[in-house]
Design a binder for these strands. Structure first.
Lengths: 144, 144
DNA sequence: ATAATAAAAGATAATTTTGTCCTATATTTA
DNA sequence: TAAATATAGGACAAAATTATCTTTTATTAT
């Protein structure tokens, strides 16, 4: 469904959010350790996320990644997915046709569009902060 | 969402269904011509579909691909997707974790599962024949 | 200022997916 | 039975994705 880049991107961001809520920065090594992802690949993804103002990066000693309180309260999964351009979920035709829309639909267009709308909604309504919170609290500890 | 193999697989099968309803076989060349797909790659996909009894292939002159009336009335998109193993839609965790289920869920498990169930249902309830029919008839000609 | 640290950036490598080519095999028709 | 035709199958190639490595740049603390 999502690309690896997207999966790591979401998981890394939630991990950063978790630390940011405690007022802490977190370094690359710690992140890829926490979410069990390849360190250099994760670095590339974090760079993209930082460029797109989803997270903040700081260089030097005590440097690392964090999210501002504004970012914590506004960043949705859809922002990450769009930034990392995962699988063209937001645009492409289900059957891979170059052009496909309601006026010129493929045989699967309407069925597919239905699913996509729901996926979109889910991503737009799910915040990183919410995921971070659900990780910490609750009956069962949700995994990352 | 789907892999290229899966996209071609679905489109090719609908094309075969269209011909089979007229009692005709259709050759590889005609198929990849009709759906604008790379011929040898399409051949590989059709082999897999034939092995899994989704379509019937015949060699020699007048050979080609067709669907039995039984196949026409029973094959669902889910059968094609499962056979071509497209993107592990039916199994994997949305965040890529090796194990993730209701008892040991990732932070996105329940939101993701919701979408996946709907996608599953859509694929299980959409028949190839139905897509073929929607291609032929209706106000707007649906594309393949 | 200098040394240490951590991210940025660019080059490179491995893997997977997608796509191609060639030979073999089966089937039909003459 | 022989020739023609069309799929099957295996080896091979290209492209995209995933992953790694090395050098550079910025920042902090001494």
């Amino acid at each position: 469904m999502f690309s690896k880049a997207c999966e790591y991107g979401i998981r890394a961001t939630v991990q950063i959010a978790l630390q940011s809520e405690k007022g802490l920065r977190i370094g690359l090594k710690e992140i890829s350790n926490a979410i069990d992802s390849p360190e250099p690949f994760t670095a590339k993804i974090l760079q993209q996320l930082a460029k797109n103002d989803i997270i903040i990066s700081s260089k030097g000693p005590t440097g690392g990644y964090e999210m501002s309180s504004n970012q914590l309260s506004t960043i949705m999964l859809s922002d990450i997915v769009k930034t990392l351009d995962c699988d063209l979920i937001y645009t492409g035709c289900g059957l891979g046709l170059a052009t496909c829309d309601a006026k010129n639909p493929c045989v699967l267009h309407f069925q597919f569009d239905d699913i996509r709308e729901q996926l979109k909604k889910m991503l737009e309504n799910t915040s990183v902060q919410q995921l971070a919170k659900s990780r910490e609290s609750g009956d069962t500890l949700l995994r990352l």
